[in-house]
Design a protein around this nucleic acid. Structure first.
Lengths: 191, 191
DNA sequence: CGTACCATTGATCAGGTTCAATGCTCGTGG
DNA sequence: CCACGAGCATTGAACCTGATCAATGGTACG
């Protein structure tokens, strides 16, 4: 098995055998910069994992503004987990911001694995837990920190996001305009 | 089995038998208004479910401010799910804002059930999913809506929270001061 | 009845938004 | 290989909303 997949195995405590079992029914795909992933409802039956690269999960709101909900890089899961659960059509779109290589896990294959061995139910639960923990961290960020502190946190905790994703997307992810982010950046440089 | 527990059974798709199995190793507890729940690290080995009542999950930050992270009422889960997972000590405190009756599920009992029957792994995953979906909704709320809209959303989607929980806690839950909430309320009344 | 806590209201301040203009950079085609 | 253009980032000015500080009003509980 490819050593690139080691990140995935480590993140979810998969042995070499288990990883191989998973990969037999999953695919590795490469996307160019700017590609849109999983359109037309595919969001509801695939989960993704980024081997290397970067992408953003975004939507266009009623005012026509492009708002980034999530910014994901190497080692992150992506996809609309809610729609993956309930099968509904997603409101989110995914777009890479650089060349990106991912693992795609099909819902039906995952269910097939779970039917064969309860191990995969635990595996599925672990994904749910990872999704929850990320969401919780995001809420704490939004509730407890100022915009400036949120940006500083990004720099220290997720430097790859800063490197790989344009500022305008980072701005809406933080909940501010690009102008404000620009001012925050100049403020930081002064200190 | 007590019909009060029907809410729990419905929320997690439990048959009467499964509910009984769960309740054999869980306890139902009543708390008075203002009680603190699960202090001293108990947060890391219990999950709770509110049969009837209301409580807030809060912390005191470095500036000494009391900030409500979650406001929960009848039919909601509570507890620090992150610490329940990893066993670490929690930074959160729980306090009822009225007389409250809850179900407490012990971590070790849950693990015992999972060892006996994979059904309980799925059950556990469902709890993880519920936690995730609530967290996701919270993020969308914080990212997409103004303070005024967030308050209006609370009124329409979770009226019990408005009824049962004092304004000062609702204010910090929304991310604003009590003064601002008061002004938002008077603004709403005018329209 | 009195007190303590909560909610309200007013005035001022800070920071983020909006609208607008300018500067910069990277990718493309001549 | 260079020049151009498009899109992104920056900067400025006026405005708006929520925070802060402070005082008052209301209410529930002993």
């Amino acid at each position: 098995m490819n050593e690139k997949l080691q990140v995935l195995a480590t993140k979810l405590n998969l042995s070499a055998d288990r990883l191989q079992e998973l990969m037999q029914s999953s695919s590795v795909v490469k996307y160019k910069k700017g590609s849109f992933l999983m359109h037309h409802g595919e969001l509801s039956h695939q989960l993704g994992f980024i081997i290397k690269g970067a992408l953003r999960t975004f939507t266009i709101n009623q005012e026509g503004e492009d708002i980034s909900f999530l910014l994901q890089v190497d080692g992150d899961f992506f996809g609309d987990y809610e729609c993956f659960l309930n099968g509904k059509k997603s409101n989110w779109q995914l777009q890479t911001t650089e060349g990106t290589e991912v693992v795609l896990i099909e819902k039906q294959h995952l269910h097939h694995l779970m039917d064969k061995d309860p191990f995969w139910i635990s595996f599925y639960k672990q994904i749910a837990d990872v999704c929850f923990l990320e969401a919780k961290r995001r809420i704490e960020e939004l509730l407890f920190y100022t915009y400036e502190q949120r940006y500083l946190n990004l720099i220290t905790n997720r430097p790859k996001v800063i490197e790989k994703i344009p500022q305008k997307y980072i701005a809406s992810y933080l909940g501010i305009t690009t102008q404000s982010l620009s001012r925050i950046r100049s403020r930081i440089l002064l200190t």
